[in-house]
Amino acid sequence: MTSETITADAAGTWTLGDLTVGRVGFGAMRLTGSAAFHHGTPSDRDRSIAVLRKAVELGVNHIDTAAFYFSSLRSANELINSALSPYADDLVIATKVGPFRNYAGEWGGLDRPEDLRAHVEENLRQLGRDHLDLVYLRRMRQDSIAEHFGALADLRTAGLVRHLGISDVEPRHLAEAQAIAPVVSVQNKYGLDFREPETDEVLRLCGEQGIAFVPFFAIAGDGGARGAATSYDAEVLAIARAHGAGPAQVRLAWTLRQGPHVLAIPGTGNPDHVVENVAAGALRLTDEEVGRLNALRQKAG
């Protein structure tokens, strides 16, 4: 694959409510440092800004972030503001609320529903915006999301939020949220080496109902927030060689094959990796290759 000439258009588009985005976006978590969140070496500021500008230069118009994406010296939202403001009219910035981190980097669990307005306002302040395009409620293992999602729906009515999504949920939570307000997107952990029947069911329901499904850790796999996978199954490597591509690109291409409603948000702090991730949107796996990868996934837990 010749990555340099490939733009985000190659992957096609999807509509989040009334907002059209490319199916390959950008996840901002890794902008802040080598190991995500407060740990590890803080990122180089100029390099992180270059990553964001490179993504937009390649046609990426969907950026996923959160106010709790920060390290000891870097805030993802502040980097986005510095790199991309004034924002292009077609740029969609999605953020997440629910979990709480203090400025020492310590997690405080899930805030009360009435505290979510402060979460939204903090994202607005950091990003320098008067409204948020898309806000996800990140579930923190609570049984019901109705009260918290209802609080976000009120902020949507007030004009602070344009569209709503939910994250880390089961099928019953999707139905619960939809009874309160429209859901345009769902974010769950999903990937080639991660198989969970409830998430597979969420993926199916989203496809049937025209809701975007946005996997996180699609490349990182078991590495999760610590970073991308460094070892790959032989099947993935063989398919990568057949296409002259990298194994991470194969994982992204497989993810996009799961349905036209599936959006990828690979994150990186490396401008070269941005080019490779966007190029994965042009990688067309054969049905036979998808079958081999699906068989590999059946072995995953």
Rank of each mutant, 00 (worst) to 15 (best):
A118H: 11
L52R: 10
A151M: 02
N277L: 04
K96M: 07
P86A: 12
T15G: 06
A238C: 01
S43D: 09
S231W: 07
F216Q: 04
L263T: 05
E106H: 05
V120Y: 02
L31R: 02
H62N: 02
V274F: 05
W254N: 00
P113W: 12
H261T: 08
P247K: 04
I93N: 02
K299G: 14
A76D: 02
I145M: 11
F70V: 01
E208D: 13
L174A: 03
F149I: 07
I180P: 06
G223I: 09
R257W: 05
A179R: 15
A242W: 01
L16E: 08
G281L: 07
E176Q: 15
L237K: 14
L152N: 04
Q178A: 07
V51T: 10
F68W: 00
P99A: 11
T5R: 14
A28V: 03
R45V: 01
T230M: 01
R162Y: 04
E176I: 04
G259Y: 12
A225C: 08
F149E: 00
G22S: 10
R251K: 10
N188K: 14
Q298I: 03
D44I: 12
N294A: 14
L283H: 01
V169W: 05
T268M: 09
G267C: 04
V97Y: 02
C206L: 08
R251V: 02
G109H: 03
L155A: 13
S144K: 14
E121Y: 03
A279L: 10
T2A: 03
N188A: 05
V275E: 14
G246Y: 05
T199W: 13
Y87Q: 04
K96L: 08
G25E: 03
H148A: 12
A179W: 06
T255V: 09
V183N: 05
A234D: 13
S82P: 00
L256F: 03
V184W: 09
A234S: 14
G12A: 13
A10I: 10
L263M: 08
V275C: 05
I6W: 08
T157K: 14
A83F: 12
H39S: 11
V184P: 07
G25Y: 07
R257L: 01
T268C: 08
D154M: 13
D168I: 07
R195V: 05
D9Y: 03
T20G: 08
A8F: 09
S85Y: 13
E122I: 09
E121Q: 14
G128Y: 12
I239S: 04
A67I: 00
A279Q: 11
N123L: 02
T32H: 06
Q209H: 14
Q258A: 06
G22A: 10
L73F: 03
T2R: 12
T230C: 04
G108K: 13
R129G: 06
E208Y: 09
D115Y: 09
H273R: 15
A67R: 05
A280T: 11
A104V: 11
G98I: 07
A225V: 08
W107C: 00
N102A: 06
R156N: 06
S231C: 01
F68D: 00
N123V: 03
R251D: 00
M1H: 14
T230D: 04
I6T: 13
